[in-house]
């Protein structure tokens, strides 16, 4: 079996793992590091449940090989913290942005990138920006309200 050893930082902790070369970042996080908050809804790049931050940018963990992450920094839902993250979590709960919770980690991480940009979004823009994350439960109304309000609160916190 063809194995690789990958060294990377996950949630600010240095990690090393030796895994089959075919291992995706999602499976590395879930199986080697026990970070099962990164969910797999399709493994086709469409649903966004597996979204994590790779070197600060949201990516599909199901479409990224673990091996390609050599030397990179990964943040998963378990490691997402700070004022922006807490505002997002509070807004999600307040606005009814989750039901079963399966899409939630990916939603939160996608929202996090938007919140950090400190840019007001119209409803249409927010929908567009979140269009890469599928939720089968909520019908998105609560998610979009939460995203916009987390962004607004982030901007307010700095003024």
């Amino acid at each position: 079996m063809s194995e690789i050893t990958v060294e990377l930082t996950v949630n600010r902790r240095a990690r090393t793992a030796t895994v089959p070369a075919r291992t995706t970042l999602a499976d590395l996080l879930r199986d080697s590091f026990g970070l099962t908050g990164t969910h797999l809804g399709c493994e086709q790049g469409v649903c966004g449940a597996c979204t994590v931050l790779l070197d600060e940018l949201p990516v599909r963990a199901c479409l990224t090989l673990a091996a390609s992450c050599q030397g990179s920094e990964v943040v998963t839902i378990e490691g997402l913290d700070g004022p922006d993250a807490e505002r997002i979590r509070a807004a999600f709960s307040r606005e009814g942005a989750l039901q079963c919770g399966f899409c939630t980690p990916g939603m939160v991480l996608s929202c996090y990138e938007l919140a950090r940009r400190r840019q007001v979004l119209t409803r249409d823009e927010a929908c567009m920006a979140m269009s890469g994350n599928i939720c089968r439960c909520t019908g998105y109304n609560g998610i979009i309200r939460a995203v916009r309000s987390a962004i607004a609160e982030g901007i307010e916190s700095e003024s």
Partner: peptide, 27 residues
């Protein structure tokens, strides 16, 4: 060749292709 993998990985995940070697050029 493996670039961003955003077309190749779905194909590999679904086993529609099974190359013996991947050469990742993103490094």
């Amino acid at each position: 060749v493996l670039g961003g993998g955003q077309s190749l990985l779905p194909i590999l995940n679904m086993r529609l292709a099974a190359p013996a070697h991947l050469i990742d050029i993103t490094g």
